[in-house]
Simulated scan of single mutants.
Amino acid sequence: MKKYDEAEGVWRTVGGRRIFIKNGQSLSEAMIESGKFAKKDKSSSALEQGYETARAMEPTITADLSEIVEESGGELTGLEFRLKTKESLERKVLSDMKLTGLSKEETLNYLYDVVRYTSLFNSDSLVPGYQRIVEKLREKGYNILRVKNTMGKESASYWGINTVVENPKGYRFELQFHTPQSFQVKQELNHSLYEEQRSSNVSRQRFKELEEQMLSNNRMIKVPTNVSDIKSFDKLKKG
């Protein structure tokens, strides 16, 4: 006789342990309730705290960015996804822990996309738009900590400009820059290929095939004017 009615949730195997997740219940809550993860309480609390901090910071960041991007001639897209769901964050943490071998706390420390945004500019206005946004963010007390510009790089399976930004209170979030075309390729063509590529059971041959397909898809993108003027740097890198 089962302890739970399956209409009220789903069974999942986490870390080799079978647990029941009720409808509307987060993974961490189900793990604690199961009694099978007593040693995880501390890390689960860290995740809960991290998520609540993100929820508290997001509204002000969103208001500032909405104003700045509009004034800079761009468009924020996908705002409905600006905050990861708690369940999505838990899946991401567990997935990254598998890939990196890091602890939950260590993994949480380098996840900067719990709050994330995407700004769109056409190929001729992306660089000046980026420059205006960076200037206006700094005027408001934000700090740009990392810029990774892979737009137009033939060897890169992802084309875009990803930045890690720190708000005046020290909270870090992700801001991406795309053209409508590069964003479409990322979302509609390459995202599913990327997800398959990073799965743990992908073969070496299949990995290479997926990489080649993403590179081929990127070649359809018009490279933004003067995009090489945006230099990559990383203030987060240790050492």
Rank of each mutant, 00 (worst) to 15 (best):
K3R: 14
K3G: 10
A7K: 15
A7E: 14
E8F: 12
E8W: 09
G9I: 07
G9M: 06
V10W: 06
V10P: 05
V10G: 04
G16F: 01
R17G: 06
R17K: 13
R18K: 14
I19N: 04
I21G: 03
I21S: 02
I21A: 04
K22V: 06
N23Q: 12
A30S: 15
I32K: 12
E33F: 06
E33C: 08
G35I: 08
F37K: 02
K40F: 14
D41W: 10
S44E: 11
S44P: 01
A46D: 14
A46T: 11
E48M: 12
E48Y: 10
E48N: 15
R55G: 13
A56L: 13
P59F: 03
P59W: 01
T60H: 13
I61Y: 04
D64N: 15
D64A: 12
L65P: 00
L65I: 01
L65F: 00
S66R: 15
S66T: 14
S66E: 09
E67F: 15
I68V: 15
I68E: 02
S72L: 09
G74R: 04
L76H: 02
T77C: 02
F81T: 08
L83F: 03
L83M: 05
K86T: 05
E87L: 06
S88G: 14
S88Y: 07
K92M: 06
T100L: 04
L102Y: 08
E105Q: 13
E105M: 09
L111I: 13
Y112K: 07
V115N: 09
V115P: 03
R116I: 01
L120D: 03
D124T: 14
L126A: 02
L126R: 03
P128M: 07
I133D: 00
V134W: 05
Y142G: 02
L145Y: 06
R146A: 07
T150Q: 01
K153A: 13
G160N: 01
E166T: 10
P168L: 10
G170E: 09
Y171M: 05
R172D: 07
F177V: 01
H178E: 00
Q181Y: 01
S182P: 02
F183I: 03
Q187I: 00
S192I: 07
L193V: 10
E195Q: 11
Q197F: 10
R198E: 10
S199G: 13
S200D: 14
R206N: 10
R206Y: 08
E209N: 09
L210A: 08
E211K: 12
E212G: 07
Q213L: 14
Q213M: 14
L215H: 04
N217L: 03
N218I: 00
M220Y: 09
I221V: 03
I221E: 02
I221W: 03
K222F: 04
V223S: 04
P224H: 00
V227D: 00
V227L: 01
S228R: 12
D229R: 15
S232A: 07
S232P: 06
S232F: 05
K235D: 09
K237S: 08
K237W: 08
